[in-house]
Lab assay of single mutants.
Amino acid sequence: MFYPNSPQTSPQLTQIPYGQQYAMMQRQIQQPYHPFATTEPQARLYPYHYQGPIQQEQGGFITQQSTAASPQYVQMRVTPVDQSIMSGYPNQTANGSSSSSFNYNIHPQQQQQQQQQQQQLRHHAMPVGSVPLQDDRYRKQLIVNYLAPDVTSTDLHELFSRFGELDGARIIYDKQTNMSKGYGFVYFCHAEDAKEAVERMSGYEFHGKWLKVGYSTNPLNIVPSNSSPYVHAGSRGAAG
């Protein structure tokens, strides 16, 4: 039997160049792979992502010199942007860049009308829970959420009447099932009393439920100042 490094198959040491006398086997001759043993700084910083320098080929596509990437890492192929796409944008300079302001050559009167329309939209648009300043009635009506099913309009009136005089209180019921929808409205005579009720009743436990109280901004629920107070009856038909 002959071994790869046996004296019968191995040459004389004098015939082997210096430095390879003890590297006779194939696994010894093959050098191990060192990912950080390279002179390129990109490979030292990113050993798993770097795959060699990027070269520009004919046709405008950018390719990489090395083989496919590892399945664990996804390499994105980048193509140059066609400058003709950006030619339609206004205020574009000769080098292809555009300024931040756009001039669509709008007539001054049209621009003024658009600004007025935007101001009107901001004036009428009102986020949930906010209180408008032009109508004091919005500051007097509250919406009470997360009410228990057994709470009546009379219970709601008695709960909030300790903060001040009320114009009314009612629970909203479903017309088909005649069941409470879980929320109601309270109408105060003074805005200061309503503000105190919002601050003190939010998070209050009532009939096993934690109440959420806020201003009601729905104009359909506003009680006119010259109208008669609501009837605080315990029956659902009268309260709904």
Rank of each mutant, 00 (worst) to 15 (best):
T177N: 14
S202P: 13
Q64L: 13
V74I: 12
S225H: 00
L166P: 08
D193R: 09
T38Y: 15
Y46Q: 11
Y89P: 12
S6Y: 12
S228W: 09
I171N: 03
D193H: 02
M25E: 14
Q56C: 00
N218L: 02
A125V: 03
N221C: 08
H232W: 00
P224V: 00
T9S: 10
Y3H: 06
H157F: 04
Q117V: 12
L156R: 10
Y138E: 15
R137Q: 07
H34D: 15
A191C: 07
V198C: 02
I29Q: 02
A125C: 15
P90E: 00
A197N: 01
I143N: 13
Q8F: 10
D82S: 05
S10L: 08
K209V: 05
S98V: 09
N91S: 08
G52N: 04
L159E: 14
T152M: 14
Q21A: 07
P127I: 15
G182D: 06
G19M: 10
S180F: 08
M25Q: 07
G182C: 10
R200L: 13
I143G: 05
P11W: 11
D193W: 07
E196L: 12
I29S: 03
P90V: 11
P35R: 06
T93E: 15
P7L: 07
A43I: 12
T177F: 00
A239R: 03
Q55F: 05
A194Y: 13
Q109M: 14
S66H: 13
H49E: 05
T154G: 12
A148L: 03
P71V: 10
Q58K: 09
F160L: 09
F102K: 13
F206N: 01
H190T: 01
I172A: 00
N145M: 07
L147W: 15
Q26L: 11
S6M: 12
Q42S: 08
G52V: 11
R139A: 14
K181F: 12
A37T: 07
E158R: 04
T93S: 11
P4C: 12
Y33N: 04
G234D: 07
E192G: 08
F36R: 11
V78Q: 12
N95G: 01
Q117W: 14
Y89D: 15
I106T: 03
G214W: 08
V231D: 12
S98Y: 06
E205I: 13
P149K: 00
S66L: 12
P108D: 15
S66G: 08
Y18N: 03
G203Y: 02
S101A: 10
S180M: 03
S180G: 03
L142Q: 03
N221K: 02
K181A: 02
L159Y: 12
P132K: 07
P149V: 14
G96V: 04
G164T: 07
Q72V: 09
Q31H: 10
D155M: 15
P127F: 13
V223F: 02
H232C: 12
S84N: 07
Q42C: 11
R27V: 15
K212W: 03
M76L: 13
L159K: 00
T177A: 04
Y18C: 07
Y18L: 07
P32K: 05
S225L: 05
P108E: 07
Q56D: 01
P80G: 11
Q109T: 05
S161D: 11
T39N: 00
Y146K: 12
N145T: 01
Q15Y: 04
G214I: 05
R44M: 14
L121A: 12
T177Y: 10
Q30G: 14
V223P: 04
M24E: 15
S180I: 04
F163Q: 01
V213G: 13
H107W: 00
Q92S: 13
S153Q: 02
E40P: 13
A197S: 07
Q83E: 01
D135M: 01
Q42K: 14
Y173F: 09
P224A: 11
S216R: 01
T154A: 08
Q113I: 13
H34V: 14
S225Q: 12
P7E: 15
Y22V: 04
T217D: 02
E165F: 09
K212P: 14
L133K: 10
M24Y: 00
G240C: 08
P17A: 05
P35Y: 15
A197F: 14
S99N: 03
Q83H: 10
Q141L: 01
P53S: 09
G214H: 10
I29K: 14
D82C: 05
Q15P: 10
F188S: 07
V231C: 14
M76G: 03
R139C: 14
M24R: 05
N145I: 06
Q92R: 11
L142G: 13
Y204L: 09
T14S: 14
V81Q: 14
D150P: 07
P108C: 14
S99P: 14
R122L: 13
T67Q: 12
